[in-house]
């Protein structure tokens, strides 16, 4: 299935709440002339933080239905979201491993007129950039090296773990996001508890605890010298960007830390104009970083 074209599975958070992430992803895809398809028929991945906590079997069946929808059209799945990736890739891997479980899930699916045969590949967009486009091509394409920019990365949990199912990068010491950022000329820092959750997963049970986790991480990143944070997941973006002001409420250092979706930073480095992206939709203003990279812009910072 290596040459099979990709169906875009956007999920629900990005299209509804963070469309600028989708804009950035589509800009990158068109820059590298990757052909993808928007298809109809998908539903919720479903959210691995809610539905599977109530009924894991139903979650597997709903994911398998999404896999079947792409499979029926002869497409692989490409997704920009960690949660969607874990749900879809995790299910595909589970059903690959366990024929009995696949039969069980297919019995449920048969009631919807679908069957998942198990032939599909699921990739996270960042994994695709790393594996299919490659660091070499990315580095060669850089028109505006992001020299001197110091970046903290937060790759997030659900692209990595459980690693036996997802198999993208080392689950405890992942490097692909660091490498992708460095390929643009920027520097990455390491900080304590880099592997910890952004906090989003504990929101339904305890919002304050979630914010505390987010605030701790932001503080560690800034202390390590980061001027910006790079993420690859909408849930992490909601915590770090949308909730940042609240998350910093109880921390000592209240300086804002601009948050970028990796493709946004990539596009800037590729020389794509910031006007083509939705930077104005970020909650934490990114102008200080844009001014540093593109001094001619002289954007207001207050």
């Amino acid at each position: 299935m290596a040459d099979t074209p990709w169906a875009l599975y956007m999920g629900c958070v990005i299209p509804n709440r963070l469309p600028y992430m989708e804009v950035a992803m589509r800009e990158t895809l068109s820059y590298f002339e990757i052909s993808t398809q928007d298809i109809s028929g998908f539903t919720c991945c479903p959210n691995p933080l809610t539905l599977s906590h109530i009924d894991h079997e139903a979650a597997l069946a709903i994911s398998a239905r999404n896999l079947a929808i792409a499979e029926e059209k002869g497409l692989n799945i490409l997704t920009p979201c960690n949660g969607c990736f874990e749900a879809l890739k995790g299910t595909a891997a589970c059903l690959q491993e366990d024929a009995e479980l696949r039969a069980k899930v297919n019995t449920i699916l048969s009631k919807t007129g679908h069957e998942y045969k198990g032939t599909i590949q699921v990739k996270h967009f960042i994994q695709f950039l790393f594996e299919d486009i490659g660091l070499g091509t990315i580095a060669e394409s850089v028109a505006l090296p992001l020299n001197d920019l110091v970046v903290a990365t937060h790759i997030g949990c659900h692209i990595l773990r459980p690693s036996n199912l997802l198999n993208v990068d080392d689950a405890q010491r992942p490097t692909i996001l660091h490498q992708l950022v460095r390929a643009l000329g920027a520097k990455t820092v390491q900080y304590p508890d880099e592997m910890d959750c952004c906090g989003y997963g504990t929101r339904p049970a305890d919002k304050d605890m979630a914010l505390k986790m987010t605030g701790n991480k932001l503080e560690n990143m800034k202390f390590a010298g980061a001027e910006a944070l790079v993420v690859i997941c909408p849930a992490c973006t909601l915590q770090f960007d949308l909730m940042q002001r609240l998350a910093l409420r109880d921390t000592e250092d209240k300086t804002p830390l601009p948050v970028f979706y990796y493709p946004e930073l990539l596009n800037l480095a590729l020389g794509i104009s910031p006007d083509k992206m939705g930077f104005n939709l970020h909650r934490v203003k990114v102008n200080p970083v844009l001014n540093k990279l593109l001094p001619d812009l002289a954007l207001p910072t207050t």
Partner: peptide, 24 residues
């Protein structure tokens, strides 16, 4: 923003209900 509208998935909605009923 120049993005396509999100498609409405009537069949998907129905299927999810079917799955919810077929499981617990």
């Amino acid at each position: 923003l120049g993005l396509p509208p999100i498609p409405l998935e009537e069949k998907g909605k129905k299927d999810l209900h079917t799955i919810a009923k077929a499981t617990e």
